[in-house]
Design a protein around this nucleic acid. Structure first.
Length: 283
DNA sequence: GCTTGCGCCTGAATGC
DNA sequence: TGCATTCAGGCGCAAG
């Protein structure tokens, strides 16, 4: 599942693979992949043709490629999206949704997405574009404001994991790294945010940064073939996961079997001993 | 204004 | 064997 580290790996691949190149052809093979581009596939193609890619940027899980027109090609990988930079002769992938060719005749940019939760659009440019103004800075962004985060967190009336997953508060964190960071910080996912002390919030932030940074070093986490870099290669961080997907296996810190609980129609993994349930949980 | 829950999707895994 | 059900989950939006 692409979260911040996985998206950053893709961004770096785009930086190497498409920045400086000019779009020569656009093929939209599935309308759902461009549903965020409300003017439709033809309009999207018209805004891309002849445009040069100037940069590859990211905030949280969003990517955008500023163009020489002042617009930007924005992408979100959703659950299963891939942005691949592959030779034009590469056989068409089963879930290929959009392909872009370039004037130099080199590798194509392909958006492949099995579950079609992701998509691309051309949006008015900016850093970042207005279309993602509601997304908070991510914790690896130099512009990330720790004090603002701590204050906003403690003003919330919700549970700690819900807050971590809310991209308007802090971006880039999904289900996997939320569980991992909470375990590292020794905090329970249902801890009421209004009871979190400043020191605990800062400890959580340290844990978030550590787990995201280590995952990035490992090239991200791949549970199946769904998350890959721009060359189709998966990450290695799943070997380092302490709790996520490890129900019944020993906690790496204390040996207690990891528990899995239903949470927001998905799951929350934690250590019953390292992360004791608060007296007044906020689920 | 803030928080919560749903629907969107496909394929692998599981159940009968 | 084969069909049906469950699960995975980020996001945007509607509802509370």
């Amino acid at each position: 599942m692409p979260e911040l580290p996985e998206v950053e790996v893709v961004r770096r691949g785009l930086q190497r693979g498409v920045v400086g190149r000019t779009v020569s052809a656009v093929e939209v093979r599935h309308p759902r992949a461009v549903r965020r581009h409300v003017a439709g596939a033809e309009d999207l193609a018209g805004l891309l043709l002849g445009r040069r890619v100037e940069d590859a940027c990211r905030r949280g899980k969003y990517l955008w490629l500023p163009l020489d027109s002042g617009d930007a090609l924005q992408a979100h990988l959703g659950m299963s999206g891939q942005l691949l930079v592959v030779p034009a002769a590469t056989p068409v992938e089963a879930h290929l949704r959009v392909r872009l060719a370039f004037t130099d005749g080199g590798a194509e940019l392909r958006f492949v997405d099995q579950r079609t939760f992701g998509g691309i659009a051309v949006v008015a440019g900016g850093a970042p574009p207005a279309s993602i103004a509601h997304i908070a800075p991510d914790p690896l962004d130099p512009a990330f404001d720790e004090d603002a985060f701590v204050h906003a967190l403690r003003r919330r009336r919700t549970g700690l994991k819900r807050a971590l997953l809310d991209q308007r508060l802090i971006s880039g964190i999904g289900n996997i790294y939320a569980d991992e960071a909470l375990w590292r910080a020794g905090l329970h996912y249902a801890r009421a945010t209004e009871t979190v002390r400043r020191g605990e919030a800062l400890r959580l932030l340290v844990a978030v940064r550590a787990v995201l940074g280590e995952a990035l070093q490992a090239g991200g986490t791949s549970f199946d073939a769904l998350y890959v870099d721009t060359e189709g290669v998966g990450g290695r961080f799943e070997r380092a996961l302490a709790v996520y997907g490890r129900r019944g296996q020993p906690c790496p810190r204390c040996g207690t079997p990891i528990r899995r609980e239903a949470f927001m129609n998905r799951s929350a993994y934690s250590c019953p001993r390292c992360q004791p349930r608060p007296r007044r949980p906020h689920l």
